[in-house]
Design a protein around this nucleic acid. Structure first.
Lengths: 356, 356
DNA sequence: TTGAAAGCGCTAACAA
DNA sequence: TTGTTAGCGCTTTCAA
């Protein structure tokens, strides 16, 4: 059954049948009723969506590219928040959200080519991601969330530099000079261990790079040589990995008084590890995160909150309002330093205050 | 730029250009290279996915219908698990996952018609959902997760009756006879309050209905008249709503010794409310859930665990392996009663044991 | 290895 | 109010 065969059956033109579905005001109610009834009787399911899309040049869906194991997207509360916000924006506009199957491993870009969508949202991928390249090659609008920064492409994200600088100043003000850092993956190759300056500076994930740079700059101001600061990178982004990274760092640098983590998930792991080694937080060790996920707030983590749901929603709105703009649009989201109960002056400072 | 104009530019046929993209073995490497290079130079982005889909009759995506506020899907860990499993199955098969924008309020079924997909997964909708009707009217395979049960349609889900019966027997064996129930919405209309027998029995959500029926049957066996058992329904499915529902129930029926909740989320709310009123769990009140989400296990909740990720994945696999079967396939997932620290004999029993 | 021809199923000018 | 005409951009027999 097709629209044409139904029209033939009815003895009307295809236009009439099409109008019965798409422009009810273009034909008499009786005729329309007759068309619809005959369609039901004959089992015609209505106009084929793909053929309609081809004709109207509208797919009615936006693609979401997140080059990661899907498990990541559904396990990280921050990512879920972004997804939810984006889904809400799509729902408002009545368009579908098409998750592009792009595993990080297999560089199979075909899925991007195959996606019938009117635009793409790209969420936090490395700047050398081949899927990203495929997306940008498609003649549809694109909005990038967080990273990378691409000249001429719309983007939504926080100002990582400002946010992390505020956090660093808080830690510095507390008196910490012996700090360590746990960060997420810096490139597509796996490196579960220390990340030295060259790797930090050549990181393919802009967000991580910006956060590390902001930390380096802030600590340099108070005389800390960043090349001496231990930074441990972790490929996977889970609480357990955060704990393992913390262990790795503290084993090698027990003198560290503050652990700065570039995400709450890692920080929660660090808290677990501190607990495991009998370190009291914040008395013996300060731990900070980034994102402001609910679980972190419940744990009292000192962190930088960012409005993740708003981030996804803003990206969706931006994408869906494309067309009436020329210059690329950048939306910078407000972040907020939230001082919890996991940061305090280092022990040595307390000893100063209270005497030995 | 289209495939045709590129072919014209190159002085070759459209077939050749098409083959350059889709069947590299059908033309000489040199010619292919020339085609691809010219394409890049002229900014031809490759075959249009929609046109290709029309021609090949393959959209390369599966639709997901969940008639709910999207916020629900992204806030309930059980739903996220299903989503993740389904996404994994899609990723394995290299097909996209198209979230259909179907708000519960607006009965706008158009989004279902517009979705260019090769099949649908329907997750837990009421049996009278109009979107579901639209899905079933489309000539593509469909798999339903959890509910409703539709004759002739593939389905994946747990055996709620067996699972809840085991749970009920546990509670009964502990000695509880004065029980109360918190359940999720029973129909599309909002009813935040008591749900009496007629509403329970006419519930449009099969899962809730089956669970209530199983409870009724199990308690009837030990002489409890189910019509005297307070059941509080809640339209929204959040921890806060669970707490409010528990308050509602306990205010009216303080003699209740066990609160049986049809989901972990509601149960977590009930725990919070018990805590608020100074009731010790399980000494003063037994609380049970359903689902086995991580947070519940962390809280030591007595619950029925179901493999949510597996549920989503199984549904995806089923859908993607359609075609080579005739009879509808039903996959029943194993559930597991997990007795935690929130269930114990009622106080009156203890008094029996230890004397007054 | 390449090309010609024939649609996939639909919508939107425009004309009647 | 209805019909005619002309594609949307592509793939796929089939024949050369």
């Amino acid at each position: 059954m097709t629209l044409a065969s139904l029209a033939a059956e009815l003895g009307v033109s295809r236009t009439t049948v099409s109008n019965a579905y798409n422009r009810p005001d273009q034909l008499s109610p009786e005729l329309r009723k007759r068309v619809l009834e005959t369609a039901r009787r004959l089992g015609y399911p209505g106009p084929d969506p793909v053929a309609r899309s081809l004709r109207t040049r509208k797919a009615g869906a936006v693609g979401l590219l997140l080059t990661e194991n899907l498990s990541y997207a559904f396990r990280d509360p921050a990512a879920i928040g972004v997804l939810e916000g984006l889904a809400l924006a799509c729902e408002d506009a009545g368009v579908g959200l098409h998750l592009v199957p792009a595993s990080p491993g297999r560089d199979d870009v075909a899925a991007v080519h195959r996606a019938g969508v009117d635009g793409f949202v790209v969420y936090s991928v490395p700047d050398d991601d081949p899927h990203l390249g495929a997306v940008l090659a498609r003649p549809v609008p694109t909005v990038i969330i967080d990273q990378p920064r691409i000249e001429g492409v719309d983007r939504v994200g926080p100002d990582d530099t400002t946010a992390v600088t505020a956090l660093a100043e808080h830690i510095i003000q507390l008196g910490h000079r012996q700090v360590g850092v746990l960060c997420m993956r810096l490139a597509r190759d796996r490196n579960d261990g220390f990340a030295y300056l060259d790797r930090q500076q050549s990181a393919h994930f802009h967000v991580q790079r910006a956060r590390l740079e902001a930390l380096a700059k802030a600590f340099a101001k108070v005389g800390v040589d960043w090349s001496t600061v231990p930074v441990v990178e972790r490929f996977e982004h889970t609480v357990d990995d955060g704990a393992a990274a913390a262990r790795h760092l503290l084993d090698a640098h027990p003198q560290v008084t503050a652990l700065i983590c570039t995400s709450d998930i890692l920080a929660l792991g660090a808290l677990a590890e501190a607990n495991r080694r009998g370190l009291r937080v914040p008395a013996d060790l300060t731990v900070t995160g980034f994102d402001g996920i609910a679980e972190a707030e419940r744990a009292g983590l000192t962190t930088v909150h960012q409005p993740v749901l708003e981030k996804g929603r803003a990206a969706g709105k931006l994408l869906l309002s494309s067309g009436d703009h020329v210059k690329p649009r950048i939306i910078t989201l407000n972040t907020q330093l939230r001082i919890g109960t996991t940061s305090a002056p280092p022990r040595t400072m307390e000893q100063h205050w209270f005497g030995p």
